[in-house]
Amino acid sequence: MFLKEYINDVLKAAKSLLTGMKVTGYYFTHRKEIITEQYPDNRATLQLAERFRGEVVMPHDENNQHACTGCSACEIACPNGTIKIINKFDIQPDGKKKKAIDTFVYHLELCTMCGLCVEACPTSAIKMANTFEHSVFNRNQLTKRLNQPGSKIREGVE
């Protein structure tokens, strides 16, 4: 019957709308469900994933030594030309010349954080750090020198 169907339609519609309102009503009355992160305020407690790829860094040990041999594997592996290695030749005590890095240039502004350079590095000299607040006012500041001034290659790394 037409009238019965009509009333049924109205009731069904009303029921479906009320179930929807029940869900939002539940969240309105349950504030503990809120999942907002108060980002700049919670810096102290912020848990960042250890593996998060934020930028390429070169770890130096306490003697200001790193493990980069200047083999340019990372430079070749990089799809964007982010890394530029400038080599120099150190005169060793025994008079032999040895290749070493002069400057490890890293263009953060070109980097897509793909991690291929870290994969390619044979001596694990570079790694991805989980820092992420990179914004600066001048773009030039994003071009970084990764090896610290006066740093040397660690003994025994070939």
Binding site: R51, F52, G115, E119
Partner: peptide, 24 residues
Amino acid sequence: MEETCGARLTMNYMVPGGVMFDLH
């Protein structure tokens, strides 16, 4: 994803021959 792959959206976790790192 972030914990294992190191990124949230563009992970680049696959390499020819397997995956880049082991699971977290």
